[in-house]
Design a binder for these strands. Structure first.
Lengths: 231, 231
DNA sequence: TGTACATCAGTGAACGCGCGTTCACTGATGTAC
DNA sequence: TGTACATCAGTGAACGCGCGTTCACTGATGTAC
């Protein structure tokens, strides 16, 4: 195997990489992916405020100009992560719906899946919750990527209608309710207040989510089940 | 009344104020309030990304150093707005609860009050939803200011328990549900996707909120009302 | 009511910084023949 | 298999910018006597 002479290895940014491993060739090979990885790690470590293209390039062990061979600009990188996040989320939601035994359970499971996603991919979720960072006017892909998630919610509500655990007719209010619930929980979690409240209540965000999902299911079942006419 | 000579009026920043009115004295008189007003207007116009202390000072018609006589630093200004926002929100929530005829209606009204607040004070809500901007570690006032809102939610759920429209016992799951619903709706609204979904559904965020609040009430009533034992 | 003086709340220049982006360049790779 | 050359994907210096914050200063205001 061809080895680059020492001089080549010690010049360039390869030697200044702080965290990740040293590169062994002039070309990176998969810089696009590594920039995304570095950016995600940066958001997880310091929040979105810590993200700059220069910083991401530095973390990836590359010069400030290098990213421009892979992304049109800063917001294009964020958009790419956002789109990736929607794909991951959609997969998780689809799986949750398919594995649920009933429609009502699926609605609860979808909410839980949002929270699982928040735990597994907090940086992606941050970008999903704050689309303005990816400059959606410039990169509309991210917006369209988000429609899949909503479609799965709608299908799950329609399942409930078919099995009689949701009121018939326009499903959009119940869809909106589940959507808002899921987004609300992860918003409260990622941005702080839920975590501290859970600590003082002696519980966890996951447990709270399970409880809320269960409560939703109970309410749906009793609201759609046979009702007495007394009173 | 004493008039400053022309020379004084034309020097200084008074003459460079773009939007607001020209100052008539060297001292501003109520700069603290005006900085808050300018910052709020800036967030509403350009989002939080548009906020810098220099920019706020410029909008208020004042030199870059002036704000430091009123706020320790940038995050102190944001914290002040955040605290103000919580006060406004709390007042609106308290009023909604007091005016509701029943506990169940109060829960719905609280959700609607969150949305009313979002329409009336979007900038304040943005800061409430993104506490990291106010550097809460440095200024814990904002966090404590948020506890009042949650207390009102809890009281409203306890009212429901008393009137029999909420399950007895620990109210925290239902409190969490209503909290998440409210936060979820305003998050989806302020950050875009709800607005565009409403357009394609031919409705408005306000209507969606009313529908969701009504659905919640219906579900609560039927879940807590007399149940048949058939099946 | 007038004066001396402390204090308050501005100014504006300056600091060092990191940013996004561009550009001429060059090393490495892939392709045609 | 070897060579010429186009193209790709890096470098690193440079640009102009706006930022947060500091500081010596000064105009305005309030207070004691």
């Amino acid at each position: 195997m061809y080895r680059l002479p020492e001089a080549h290895l010690s010049t360039g940014y390869a030697g200044k990489v702080p965290a990740s491993e040293t590169r062994t060739s002039y070309h990176h090979g998969s810089l696009r992916e590594e920039l995304i990885t570095a950016c995600v790690a940066l958001i997880e470590a310091e929040g979105i405020g810590g993200v700059s293209l220069r910083r991401v390039a530095r973390e990836a062990g590359v010069s400030p100009g290098a990213p421009y061979h892979h992304f049109q600009d800063r917001s294009a990188l964020l958009t790419a992560i956002s789109v990736q996040g929607y794909e991951l989320l959609e997969r998780q939601l689809r799986q949750a719906r398919e594995q649920a035994p009933t429609g009502a359970r699926a609605l609860g499971a979808l909410i839980e899946a949002y929270v699982d996603f928040a735990r597994a991919h907090p940086a992606h979720l941050h970008l999903i919750l704050r689309p303005e960072l990816a400059e959606p006017d410039k990169h509309p892909e991210a917006q369209t990527a988000g429609e899949g998630a909503l479609r799965i919610l709608t299908e799950a509500v329609e399942d409930c209608q078919r099995e009689g655990t949701a009121p018939p007719g326009d499903p959009s209010t119940l869809v909106g309710m589940v959507w808002a619930l899921a987004i609300g929980i992860v918003t409260l979690w990622l941005d702080g207040p839920l975590e501290s409240r859970c600590v003082s209540l002696g519980t966890t965000p996951e447990q709270v989510t399970v409880d809320i999902a269960a409560l939703l299911e109970v309410m749906m079942l009793s609201a759609s089940g046979p009702r007495s006419t007394s009173g």
